[in-house]
């Protein structure tokens, strides 16, 4: 089984988000870029599975749709153990364009299982995995919190709105994962870091893909009103306030 992990590159989650003065795009100066945390968990789990003797996983690759400045972050994925990486060299405007570029690579390189994080910490589209599945006409599963692989099937746990299902699925398929799939992302070993340079990071040219949704401007959240402090000895005061002033 060949696994492809989709990876977006996002500002470190501790970053204060600022926009350029025209409010049309993110102010990127001073931002530290990281692998989207959910995608990193997806990669972690994919690597764990490959290391199990009977998993039948022969390859774990990562893919990013974006420009060259993401390469150092992609290198980290190689340093922690991905076998190879693809980068489609285009600044995609939305989820549809990303899914379209992905589908081309998945078809050409014959991947069996595509894993994506259920959300991306930047524009929170959470749509790429399902769009990709639809474009490929593959089955897909979202909100996955556990994944195991056997020779030609995977066992997954899916958290739906009111229930948790255990599913055995036969790839090809796309799954989007949430927290719980793996504990902590891996720290690359020094040997892994040095070895990453000799692993393939293939830059691919984009195919024509049209999307019809794009961000045109941004806005900072409004200042919240000041916190009203309540005497710890008078909890009933808080209860009154919640009932009368906050209508709850």
């Amino acid at each position: 089984m060949k696994i492809l992990v989709c990876m977006s590159v996002v500002p470190d989650t501790t970053t204060q988000i600022r926009f350029k003065p025209d409010m049309n795009s993110l102010e990127t100066s001073g931002i530290q870029w990281i692998i989207n945390p959910w995608d990193e968990l997806a990669l972690t789990r994919a690597l764990e599975i490959r290391e199990q003797p009977d998993s039948g996983v022969t390859q774990v690759s990562v893919i990013h749709i974006g420009l060259k400045d993401a390469d150092p972050v992609i290198q980290k994925a190689l340093a922690v153990g991905a076998d190879s990486a693809y980068r489609v060299n285009v600044a995609a405007a939305g989820a549809m364009e990303v899914a379209c570029q992905l589908s081309e690579v998945v078809k050409k390189e014959h991947f069996d299982l595509v894993i994506a994080g259920h959300d991306s910490a930047d524009y929170n589209g959470s749509a790429v995995g399902e769009m990709l599945a639809e474009l490929l006409d593959w089955i897909s599963f979202s909100s996955i919190c556990s994944l195991a692989a056997a020779k030609d099937s995977i066992t997954i746990e899916r958290e739906m709105d009111t229930r948790t299902e255990t599913i055995i699925a036969h790839p090809p398929c796309v799954i989007t994962i949430q927290k719980g799939i793996a504990k902590d992302p891996r720290i690359p070993s020094l040997r892994g870091i040095m070895g990453a340079r000799s692993k393939p990071l293939l830059q691919l040219e984009p195919i024509p893909c049209a999307g019809s949704a794009a961000f045109v401007k941004f806005e900072n959240p409004a200042q919240r009103s000041k916190c009203r402090m309540i005497d710890p000895a008078k909890p009933e005061e808080l209860v009154e306030l919640l009932r009368n002033e906050a209508n709850v």
Partner: peptide, 9 residues
């Protein structure tokens, strides 16, 4: 966007 840290149009 950015998990509630900002809004986008």
């Amino acid at each position: 966007v950015f998990t509630g840290k900002a809004y986008g149009f």
